[in-house]
Design a protein around this nucleic acid. Structure first.
Lengths: 238, 238
DNA sequence: GCAAAAGTGTTTCCGATACACCCATGA
DNA sequence: TCATGGGTGTATCGGAAACACTTTTGC
């Protein structure tokens, strides 16, 4: 048995967004090689930790570097350390191109966030060729063990949503109660009763109706609300 | 900026027990040097991860090696990676004695468990000179950042106890409802109403009264119960 | 005027809380 | 017989769940 002298440590970010009534996750398209052999590989944004930075700092930096996402709240949720998690052929191929120690074992610390998609300006850089939002139920095979990381992240999100008023983070500043309900139904994967749901939301002090209605649709326009963080009451609301 | 070629990865275990109406945590007394300078250092059981083992395996192995605890459920709860988490003078002193790369940064993945104290046979070995149960509110300054890890572990336990029927893991097989209540009160740090608490517990299908009473005390003997895992109903109980 | 989505109230059930006295035992 | 901790029942409140029709708009 040999002790781990040459382990690499990375961070990976699972960032959720919500648009067009679909829950999406932020992925990067990895640069693979110059011939661009059509062999696109999608991955969670993630990279190695620097020598002198904390894990949280690393997560923020890496996310910024790869996707240009900045100033988002990131929360660590799990670490993955299977010795074979980066040993598939495609993984190795990529690692040999981009890492100094492609054979090293990599242990990764994963972070999660939920954001209002339309408020950020994404831009791929570093080894990210592109940045894309993919519906969580249409995610293909990802690099490394990123499918597993996503799965655990999704579970984490579901747990969060049951106990904290976090879903407002996913909606635009101005949202309708129907959007909010759809979001809940999607994340919890079950239908909710409209009247009960509305009553419950309207009882939350931080949920404020605006003098404005949503327009553009050829239906009865719906009331817009916003979420006032200053009025959060974490004891009473959930 | 230099990438992390020489990071060490370790696991640390926060094991909780309950006896004499006190919540305790399992600590090891580190061997420091041969002169045994009276400078005892307490630490969570933890050590470096081997090259070819998963994090979970490492946690089990390390716990067994240091304390002889075996076959306990271990759950990962957080990773700690501050670049300076092992840089205090005493930490360095110890590392230089026991580690090949004492200057390496160490990132640690922490695990938690709760056990029935009296059912295990503890025995210090490896660099553990002794194994001790310390009441959580009497824990002195520990090695490295272990006080912080313990704090986070304790918070994790509190969250668990609110949502899962885990406190039975901490009590002997046969327990009284009063013991159970005391345990709750200690972990949640508030008084509970006896009648309400008992009604609630007795409604749980897995809580089974025995034909036996506790004796030895010079009072009315209390009814003993046991927790039948086969009858767990995780939807109904909490 | 009609199709489509928005919006609205009442009842029932259950878990959570509050609260005070009698019981069984060993000394 | 008494001191000590063990054990018991009821009433109230509030949140969760079930349930169906009317309203507003664009076309």
């Amino acid at each position: 048995m040999v002790v781990n002298k040459f382990i690499n440590v990375s961070v990976d970010c699972v960032i959720f967004g919500f648009s067009e009534d679909v829950l999406k996750v932020l992925l990067i398209e990895q640069i693979t090689d110059s011939q661009s052999n059509g062999n696109k590989r999608l991955a969670l944004p993630g990279d190695l930790v620097y020598e002198e930075e904390t894990l949280n700092t690393a997560a923020k930096r890496v996310l910024k570097e790869l996707t240009n996402l900045d100033n988002v709240f990131l929360k660590q949720f799990h670490s993955f350390g299977d010795p074979n998690r980066v040993k598939e052929e495609k993984d190795q191929f990529w690692l040999r191109k981009f890492r100094e120690n492609p054979d090293a074992r990599v242990i990764t610390v994963s972070y999660y966030s939920i954001i209002k998609m339309e408020q950020y300006d994404l831009k791929a850089s570093s080894f990210a060729q592109d940045v894309v939002w993919i519906p969580v139920n249409q995610v293909p095979k990802l690099a490394f063990d990123h499918n597993m990381i996503l799965e655990v992240g999704l579970q984490y999100l579901r747990d969060q949503i049951k106990t904290n008023p976090v879903m407002f983070e996913l909606l635009p500043d101005k949202f309708t109660l129907n959007q909010l309900q759809k979001l809940h139904e999607i994340v919890l994967n079950k239908k909710l009763d409209k009247r009960n749901f509305r009553r419950k939301m309207q009882k939350i002090k931080a949920v404020i109706p605006l003098d404005e209605k949503l327009k553009g649709v050829s239906k009865k326009p719906s009331q817009l609300y916003f979420y006032d963080k200053n009025k959060e009451d974490l004891n009473g609301d959930f």
